[in-house]
Computed example of a mutant assay.
Amino acid sequence: MVDEQWLSGTAQSRVDKSLARIREQQSVWILTDEHGCVMLTTEDEEGVPVWPQGDLAALWATDEWAHCEPLAISLKDWLEKWTGGMLQDDLMVMVCPLPGEDGEVLDPEDFAQQLTKA
């Protein structure tokens, strides 16, 4: 069950809470299907949606994404493998989107720097 704190507030407040939870849990959650990681496209950007916990990712898995499953990636792997790969592929990080909202869009390097702040 998703805590109501995640469903209220601004996208920026979800980013702040997400960063804190990811640092605490040492994992980033994505959605996957038979083709790999789910990608999102906004008007201006293409990227990978990420969440601080699996139940939030599962909220997004509706309609055309109903077949997708949440997957945890260790923070270490995210920082060592995903950040560089996303920069190379010119992809952004979409932090904690919820149904009807895209979430905040961050550069992978900025996201990584914020995750490693003490």
Rank of each mutant, 00 (worst) to 15 (best):
G54N: 09
G47A: 03
E43F: 04
K76W: 06
T41W: 09
L59M: 07
P52V: 04
E64H: 09
S74L: 02
P52D: 06
C68F: 09
L79D: 04
D77T: 09
G54C: 01
L71T: 01
H67M: 06
W65F: 15
S74M: 01
L71S: 06
W51V: 00
K76P: 03
S74R: 09
T42V: 08
P49S: 03
L75E: 12
P49T: 02
W78L: 12
T42K: 03
L56N: 01
A72S: 12
W60C: 13
D63E: 14
E69A: 08
D77A: 15
D77H: 11
Q53Y: 12
P49M: 02
D55E: 12
A61I: 06
T42M: 05
W51G: 00
A72K: 07
D77Q: 15
A58I: 00
T41Y: 04
P49C: 04
G54S: 07
L59H: 08
K76Y: 03
E69S: 14
C68A: 15
A58M: 02
T62K: 15
E69I: 07
A57D: 02
L59V: 06
D77Y: 07
W60A: 13
T62M: 11
V50I: 15
E45I: 05
P70M: 10
L79Q: 05
L56P: 08
D63S: 10
A72G: 13
A57E: 15
A72R: 07
C68W: 03
E64D: 15
W78P: 02
T62E: 15
A66W: 00
S74F: 10
H67E: 01
E69Y: 03
A72H: 08
D44T: 12
W65Q: 15
A66L: 10
W65K: 11
L75G: 03
P70S: 11
S74T: 08
E43C: 07
L59P: 14
I73R: 05
A58G: 09
W51F: 07
D44P: 01
L71P: 01
L59Q: 08
E46I: 15
S74K: 04
P70D: 10
D77W: 10
